[in-house]
């Protein structure tokens, strides 16, 4: 958690999209930005400096208020996937409340996925977090491509970890909100244990997830109906 201020009644959470380079982390945020409702969501900030990729990362902020008046800001970050930007990854990962690991479904990328996941484990340890405890989901992106790892194989390798797995295509927008919803839900459970969001702030998990993942068309439909 980046910040919790009892007097200001304010909480700032951080989610991080992690994964090997070009697995589609930014595409995930872009897709979320497109699909989700503008209400309570800030603009996507893309820090894409051409010369220095060290500070290449994206930020998609969300904002909601609990019935108690508790203001919750949720900042979703991506990290650069290139091996050499390890320091940036560690910097962004500091005080994270949840991680979405975006893997590349292509068969040729299997090794990179493993290496990146190993790197995530190390980085988490480095910033004092535990991969066992932190809310974590895995998404196999680029599901629209051919030459991809089969669902059976993915399940065989990753299921034993007990981490929720999603197949997705950021390009076509499927599986993206599902991944995000699950991560947000897990993060709620994680935070609720300590900050009693439901008990003290009247914010239950359904509302929390729904507020953060409200699709633009749902609102329009809801508005019309």
């Amino acid at each position: 958690m980046i910040e919790y201020d009892e007097i200001e009644n304010r909480m700032v959470l951080k989610l991080v999209y992690y994964g090997p380079s070009f697995s589609g982390k930014t595409s995930n945020l872009l897709s979320l930005h497109d699909i989700l409702d503008r209400e309570g969501r800030g603009d996507l900030m893309v820090l894409d400096t051409k010369d220095d990729r060290t500070i290449f990362f994206d930020l998609l902020p969300f904002f909601l208020t609990a019935p108690s008046g508790l203001k919750i800001k949720l900042k979703v970050y991506t990290v650069p996937g290139q091996v050499k930007h390890d320091a940036t990854r560690k910097a962004v990962l500091q005080r994270a409340d949840g991680v979405a690991f975006i893997a590349d479904s292509q068969i040729s990328e299997e090794t990179n996925n493993f290496e990146s996941f190993k790197n995530l484990e190390n980085s988490l340890t480095f910033v004092g977090l535990s991969i066992e405890k932190i809310p974590l989901v895995i998404q196999f992106n680029k599901g629209d491509l051919h030459n991809i790892i089969s669902e059976v194989d993915i399940g065989r390798v990753w299921k034993p970890t007990g981490i929720p797995i999603f197949l997705a295509s950021a390009l076509y927008g499927w599986g993206i909100v599902e991944t995000f919803s699950k991560l947000v839900g897990l993060t709620y459970d994680y935070i609720d244990k300590r900050y009693r969001l439901k008990q003290d702030h009247g914010l239950d998990i359904e509302t929390f997830v729904q507020k953060l993942t409200c699709r633009s068309e749902e609102r329009e439909q809801g508005g019309n109906g």
């Binding site: 900030m45 060290t54 500070i55 930020l59 940036t88 910097a91 962004v92 500091q94």
Partner: peptide
């Protein structure tokens, strides 16, 4: 600011 922030951290 974010850039400076992350740069300094790194």
């Amino acid at each position: 600011m974010l850039t400076a922030e992350i740069h300094t951290t790194v």
